[in-house]
Design a protein around this nucleic acid. Structure first.
Ligand SMILES: [Zn+2]
Ligand SMILES: [Zn+2]
Ligand SMILES: [Zn+2]
Ligand SMILES: [Zn+2]
Lengths: 144, 144
DNA sequence: GAGCCAGTTGTTATTATGTAACGGCAATAT
DNA sequence: ATATTGCCGTTACATAATAACAACTGGCTC
């Protein structure tokens, strides 16, 4: 496990306990595994494999928790997960830039995009609850 | 099968043969089944069940074809498909408004949203290939 | 401490979703 | 007619996710 991962885990632990949430072993291990993929997405079964001796159910439960806490995001179009340790105003309104070559994911929080969509859909009288905005392509590095 | 479905199938047949594509029995049946769900999404296995006597592989192959021809769209966040018989400039740049109650899907083609996202992501030097924009919530009817 | 409760975990089985592979068949071309 | 190509039927498999239930843990009350 990378040193940076340990640091991050420790920091998360502090934040969660402050919130009264339990950062159990299983949850820590899954979060660590996710972080070790280093900014690329990981599928649930990738994590199962990376951890060894763990059942899928365990991983899915931990992922559900992490997503609920804003520590990970689910990428619907990949059936995968990306860790997130930033302090966003609202994770639920993120946009993801997904490089289909190196698998790195960048998270945008463009209020502008958000507001714009809200404005456009208001015409239809549609009441938005959640948005899935996943933009695929090539990151700047992978275009070379 | 509804009368409207038959009409639609006939119209599609004409368009496809004009394009030199083959609208085989399997493809017609799957498209018809999809249309019969009447503007709501259908999962691949829903269609398998609705058709009876058909194997999943058959349905998936037909769906792949229909999606490629712009006659259906895949909704990533639902693992489902929606039929589409409109003549859009480009189906690949659609946005979907998905009612989580009645399951109806409305398709937007807002160039504005499109351009706006392109503009925002250009800053990162990201080269977009495809976009998944799926907006969940309640349609105007279901808010009552 | 003993009892209690809510949340968490372990375990097993099952469901849901999607593909690989291969042989046969059908339309089209030469 | 023969070759080529695309399409289909079938089987088996791979991947993704959940159900159900018992056991355990940590914090709480008495
Ligand atoms: Zn985030
Ligand atoms: Zn890349
Ligand atoms: Zn469309
Ligand atoms: Zn509705």
């Amino acid at each position: 496990m990378q040193a940076k991962t340990k640091e991050t885990i420790a920091a998360i632990e502090e934040k969660l306990t402050a919130k009264g949430e339990r950062f159990t072993d299983a949850r820590q291990s899954v979060m660590a595994a996710l972080l070790e993929f280093d900014a690329t997405t990981a599928k649930a079964y990738d994590i199962v494999e990376a951890m060894g001796n763990v059942k899928p159910m365990t991983v899915y439960r931990a992922l559900d928790f992490l997503v609920a806490q804003g520590l990970a995001h689910r990428i619907e179009s990949l059936n995968a997960y990306a860790p997130c340790v930033e302090n966003h105003c609202a994770h639920k309104d993120s946009q993801y830039l997904i490089c289909d070559k190196c698998e790195k994911v960048e998270e945008l929080h463009s209020h502008a995009i958000d507001d714009f969509i809200a404005e456009q859909t208001a015409k239809d009288g549609f009441k938005i609850s959640t948005k899935v905005i996943e933009i695929h392509g090539l990151c700047s590095s992978c275009q070379l």
